[in-house]
Amino acid sequence: MKLYALSDLHLRYEHNQQALQSLAPHPDDWLIVAGDVGETREHLHFAWRTLTARFRQVIWVPGNHELWTVSREPGALRGEALYRQQVEDCRSFGVLTPEDPYPRWPGAGPHRVLVPLFLLYDYSFRPTYVAEKDAIQWAMDSDVLCTDEALLHPDPYPSRAAWCAARVEQTLARLEALPADCSTLLINHFPLRYEHVRLPRIPRFSIWCGTKKTEDWHRRFRAEVVVTGHLHMPATLWRDGVRFEEVSLGYPKQWTWRGDISVLLREILPGPSR
C-alpha cells in the first residue's frame, strides 16, 4: 500500500485531462491532490470521477484556482460559499477534504495522521523591507500581478489576508488537539516556508504563495513529510530532517517534456530515503 501525491492538474487543458485518464489503476493506494484541479465545478467532477475509480482513497486540498469565481452570472458563488460547495461535492464522491476528520494512515509504519490544510496566503512572503500595504505594488513594479486579485473573492471576510488568518487560527486548534504520539503528513496547496518559494523568473509572485505563520509547523506538529504544490516546480527538499515534496503537474508545456504523467506521480509513503 502506497501514498501518492499530485497537484496543479489544471484540467482546463484537454491534454491534462487525457493524461489524467491515462493513469493506471492503483486499487490499493491513496492519492493526495494538492490543489489547482481546475476553475469550474465540471473540472473537479471530472477529476473525482477519474481518480476515485483508480485509487482506494483520494484526499483534496484547494488551490487558488478552485476558488476563482469565473462565472459572471448573478448569484455565482464566491469565497467561503464556493469552497463549501466544493467540500460537499468532494464528499459526494468520497473524497476527503480539510473539513473532514484527519485520517490515520492505514499502511505500514508508525502512527501517522494525514492533515489536509486550507490556509491561503497573506502577502507575508516578501522581504522585510517591503511593508504589507506596499506588497502588491512591489510585485506590480516587476510586472507581476496574480489573477487572484480579480477572481478570488474572500467573502464574507474583508480580505484574502483576513480569510487566511481565520483559516490558520481554526487549523491550529485542530492540530494542537492531535495525539502527542503521532507524526503528521501536512498537506497544503501553498508552501509552508518562504525559503521554498523558488521562482527565478517571477520572484515577486511570492506574496501569493503562503504565510509566514506556518514557518515552524513542520517541527511544531511533528511532520514526517510536507506536501505542497502551486509553484509548478516539482522537487524534494529537506529541512530539519523533514521531507518537503512539491508535487505539481502544471500546464502542458511545463511537464510534457518530462514524459508520461505517471512519472510525475510522487510517492510520499513509503517514499525515498534521504
Rank of each mutant, 00 (worst) to 15 (best):
L3I: 09
A5S: 14
A5F: 03
A5G: 12
S7Q: 04
H10T: 02
Y13D: 12
N16Y: 01
A19K: 00
L20E: 05
Q21P: 01
H26Q: 15
H26W: 09
P27M: 03
P27H: 02
W30C: 02
I32R: 07
V33Q: 01
G35M: 04
G38C: 02
L44R: 10
W48F: 15
W48A: 14
R49C: 07
T50N: 09
L51E: 05
T52G: 04
A53G: 11
R54P: 13
V58R: 05
I59L: 15
W68E: 12
V70H: 03
V70D: 01
R72N: 13
R72K: 12
G75K: 13
G79W: 04
R84V: 06
V87A: 04
R91N: 14
P98H: 09
R104A: 14
P106C: 04
G107R: 11
P110K: 09
R112P: 02
L114K: 09
L114Q: 05
P116L: 02
P116N: 06
L117Y: 11
F118M: 13
L119A: 10
L120G: 07
S124Y: 06
T128I: 05
A131H: 11
A131T: 09
K133C: 01
D134F: 01
Q137A: 14
A139V: 06
M140L: 09
S142D: 15
D143M: 06
L145M: 15
L145V: 14
C146K: 00
A150H: 07
A150P: 00
L152R: 10
H153G: 00
P154R: 12
D155L: 14
Y157D: 13
Y157C: 09
A162H: 01
W163F: 15
C164P: 05
V168T: 06
Q170V: 00
A173K: 15
E176F: 06
A180E: 15
A180M: 12
L185H: 08
L186A: 10
L186W: 11
I187C: 14
N188G: 13
L192N: 11
L199M: 15
L199E: 14
I202R: 15
I202S: 13
P203S: 07
F205P: 02
S206I: 13
I207C: 03
W208T: 08
C209I: 02
G210S: 11
T211Y: 02
K213C: 05
D216A: 14
R220V: 07
E224Q: 15
V225Q: 11
V226Y: 03
V226N: 05
V227I: 13
T228K: 00
T236I: 11
G241F: 06
G241E: 11
R243A: 13
E246R: 00
V247N: 09
V247M: 04
S248E: 04
G250E: 05
P252L: 09
W255D: 08
D260V: 02
L264W: 01
L264H: 03
R266D: 00
R266I: 00
E267P: 05
L269S: 12
P270S: 08
G271T: 07
P272W: 05
P272C: 12
